[in-house]
């Protein structure tokens, strides 16, 4: 295990919950933007939100990632299933100094609710927002719900960029103190129409994306093709590209995910490798570690985004074993009672 260096403790203020001092050229006062703009290879992770009204559950789940990631994504009704809201999780996390990524899905909120939530989140110290279209209600546990989709992922980006940079709502009404946020979006290099995907990234950048986090990557040649086209267009210089990774538990689980989770592409070779292994969980972990090490070498990639639904401890083990941080230790919470 790497000894903690003073490294990223530079990214903390006196009060853990307070925004960091502003830096020139930065849109937010958060840690994720600082790490990326310094040129460090960033690691973000997705947190599984609790089905509970207990704040301690949020802190327990976040503690697993403490000192291992640069930001924690709080999903917004992922897969159209209901959990504690993203904005509330982010507000709780900022109180103790974590850098959360507030995910907004267009499925559940119209433009009035979204603009209000953006102001509220920024007031609570949330520095990063990920703009998503969102899964359809049909795939979730409450398919009877009314899908909203008033905005889409791209017009959502543009809406928040206008609020931040032009200090106004969509209606034109003035905003006294604009939200200082680092704006993100999702990409899926692995879904059709594949030729259109790099153009779609360019469109997201034009709409305001400063960083993107991708869908799970299990197909390295496809990623390399996509990144080559992005780099040829200089998109990696306009936007930090983080690639999504996660461990597969077994060949059976992989097949299930491929069939039931929208947008996840898993090549047959990956499933065969898992199926042929004696210990499939271990093989899934090793496969993920190898992928991370290979992704790190792809030109234009600025970091990884780890998604390990309900297997957060394994995610941390993977971050450690892959040595993706290169000896760097991200910010860690100084808890009372510790030295």
């Amino acid at each position: 295990m790497t000894a903690a260096t003073d490294g990223d403790q530079q990214d903390s203020g006196r009060d853990p919950g307070a925004p960091l001092p502003p830096l020139p050229g930065h849109s937010s006062r958060g840690r994720l933007e600082r790490v990326l703009r310094r040129g460090e290879f960033a690691v973000t992770a997705e947190m599984d939100p609790p089905d509970s009204a207990d704040a301690d559950e949020v802190y327990q789940r976040a503690a697993v990632f403490d000192g291992w990631v640069d930001a924690i994504n709080a999903t917004d009704g992922a897969g159209a299933n209901c959990h504690m809201s993203s904005v509330a999780i982010c507000a709780l996390l900022t109180r103790v100094g974590y850098a959360p990524v507030f995910q907004i899905s267009c499925r559940d909120h119209n433009r009035i609710a979204i603009q209000g939530n953006v102001l509220g989140a920024a007031a609570m110290g949330v520095g990063n927002i990920l703009c998503l279209t969102g899964d359809g209600v049909e795939v979730g546990d409450q398919p009877q719900a009314k899908p909203v989709f008033d905005l889409d992922g791209i017009s959502l980006l543009e809406t928040i960029r206008i609020m931040r940079d032009e200090k106004r709502f969509l209606s034109g009404r003035k905003i006294a103190s604009p939200p200082e946020v680092f704006l993100g979006a999702a990409i899926n290099p692995f879904a059709p129409p594949v030729d259109y995907r790099p153009l779609r990234l360019a469109k997201k950048i034009a709409a305001g994306a400063q960083f993107v986090q991708s869908q799970y990557c299990f197909d390295l040649p496809m990623l390399r093709d996509y990144m080559k086209r992005a780099v040829d267009q200089g998109l990696h210089e306009e936007c930090f590209i983080l690639i999504g990774v996660g461990p597969l538990a077994s060949a059976r689980a992989a097949r299930w995910i491929r069939e039931h989770v929208p947008g996840v592409h898993i090549p047959e070779a990956v499933i065969d490798r898992l199926a042929g292994a004696q210990d499939q969980i271990r093989e899934g972990r090793d496969l993920c570690i190898e992928l991370i090490q290979q992704i790190r070498e792809v030109e234009g990639v600025a970091g990884i985004h780890v998604m390990a639904y309900r297997r957060e401890r394994l995610a941390v083990e993977i971050i450690e074993k892959s040595a993706v941080l290169g000896g760097r230790r991200p910010w860690k919470r100084q808890q009372a009672g510790q030295a």
Binding site: G136, P147, F149, S155, P192, Y196, K203, P262, G263
Partner: peptide, 13 residues
């Protein structure tokens, strides 16, 4: 989803 700015990430293979 009534998307007017391009496909979502869920398009099947």
């Amino acid at each position: 989803k009534g998307l007017r700015n391009g496909p979502c990430g869920g398009v099947r293979a």
